[in-house]
Amino acid sequence: MSKTVIVTDSTSDIPVDLVEQYNITIVPLRVLFGGDAYLDGKDITASQFYKRLVESSQLPTTSQPSPADFVAAYEDIFNKYPDCRILSMHLSSEMSGTYQSARLATDLIQENLQGQVTVWDSKSASYGFGMFVVHAAKLSSEGRTLEEIVASTEELRSKRQLYFLVDTLEYLQKGGRIGKASAVLGTLLNIKPILSIDREGVIYPVDKVRGRKKATSRIIEVFQRDLPGVTHIKVAVGTTADPASVHDFLEQLSAVFTIEETTYSDIGAVVGTHVGPGTIAAYIWPA
Rank of each mutant, 00 (worst) to 15 (best):
L104A: 07
S158L: 13
K80G: 11
F70D: 01
A137M: 03
K138R: 13
Y99C: 11
L156M: 07
E148I: 12
S88T: 03
E154F: 13
P82H: 14
T45K: 00
T61C: 11
T45L: 05
Q116P: 08
S63G: 06
V71L: 08
M131P: 00
G97M: 08
R160F: 14
R103Q: 07
F70Q: 05
E94L: 06
I149S: 06
V119E: 07
S57E: 08
Y127H: 12
Y38L: 04
V31L: 09
V119M: 11
E142F: 15
I24G: 00
E154M: 09
V16L: 08
E148N: 10
G41R: 04
E94P: 05
V119H: 09
D107I: 07
S88H: 11
C84Q: 05
S140E: 15
F70W: 06
E142C: 12
T118L: 14
C84D: 05
A68R: 09
W120L: 11
Y38H: 11
I86G: 00
K138H: 13
E111K: 11
A46M: 07
L18Q: 00
Q48N: 06
T153C: 11
L39P: 05
V133D: 00
G143A: 07
N79Y: 14
S101Q: 03
A136Q: 04
Q21N: 05
V133T: 09
A68N: 12
F132W: 09
D17M: 01
A102R: 06
I44F: 12
K51C: 03
L18V: 02
F78K: 02
L146N: 07
P28Y: 09
K51S: 03
Q48A: 14
S66H: 10
S158W: 09
K80R: 08
R103E: 02
Q58N: 08
G97H: 09
D121A: 02
I149W: 10
K138Y: 14
T62H: 12
S152Y: 09
E55V: 06
D107M: 12
S88M: 09
K80P: 00
G34E: 06
E147Q: 15
Y22L: 00
K138M: 11
Q110A: 15
S66K: 13
D76H: 15
D83Q: 13
S140F: 15
L156Y: 12
P67D: 00
R103G: 01
L156G: 05
M89E: 00
E55W: 11
I86Q: 01
T25Q: 15
L18N: 00
R103V: 10
Y50F: 15
S152C: 08
S124C: 08
Y50S: 01
R52P: 00
K123L: 07
L18T: 02
K42M: 03
D40K: 05
S122G: 01
T45D: 00
